[in-house]
Design a protein around this nucleic acid. Structure first.
Length: 188
DNA sequence: CCGAGGATCATCT
DNA sequence: GATGATCCTCGGT
């Protein structure tokens, strides 16, 4: 069953945790690709690492849309990262999806990534975007649609809380969450 | 295993 | 003009 707007329209830290164990699905003419969400990071209001912390710009516009909107941005001249917009519309909060455990459409992922090592298919925010063909074309789309959405999965097991990866500001905040012991998490 | 460095460009100052 | 919510490769240990 597909997660609805209500699921996303909750406090961002709570959504970041509750997304663990759910199944991200990318539907394309080639077929479906899907994976279990095993690692997330929250980005909130008044959080210096949040792209929306300095107001609305061309890049982050999708963050200010309704909960359940996809925010996809381009970084380092070659990578995309995918976020789910959360909480109240207009405040600019989101959850970065950092890693998936691949379950469906693995051959398509391997082709998109140019490798067959399952461990490296979706273990990292840019890796999963490449594997699922998530690009700027999906920035702003609604997760209530048919091209990118999230299905209710199994109940999360033990969840680990940690500092976020790759940021300079806000290192002190414990806004990263991942499934304990899952081998597809991007980093320990 | 680990760290350093480069790739590469849209966005913002 | 500098930077970045990353990844890959290469060289050393």
């Amino acid at each position: 069953m597909k997660l609805d707007r209500q699921f996303y329209a909750a406090p961002t830290l709570r959504v970041a945790r509750s997304l663990l164990g759910q199944v991200l699905v990318r539907r394309s003419p080639q077929g479906d690709r899907a994976g279990i969400i095993v690692e997330t990071e929250a980005y909130t209001q008044n959080d210096p690492a949040c792209h929306a912390s300095r107001g609305k710009t061309r890049r982050n516009a999708a963050m200010f849309g309704p909960a359940g909107t996809a925010y996809v941005y381009f970084i380092y001249g070659m990578h995309y990262c995918f976020n789910v917009v959360t909480a109240r519309e207009g405040i600019g909060e989101a959850v970065l999806i950092r890693a998936l455990e691949p379950i469906t459409g693995i051959p398509l992922m391997e082709e998109a990534r140019g490798l067959t090592d399952g461990k490296l298919l979706c273990s990292g925010p840019a890796r999963l975007c490449q594997a699922l063909d998530i690009t700027a074309a999906l920035d702003g789309v609604s997760l209530t649609g048919e091209t990118l959405f999230i299905l209710a999965g199994s109940q999360p097991q033990s969840i680990v809380t940690a500092s976020r990866i790759g940021i300079s500001a806000g290192q002190d905040l414990q806004y990263r969450f991942y499934l304990s012991g899952n081998k597809f998490v991007s980093k320990k």
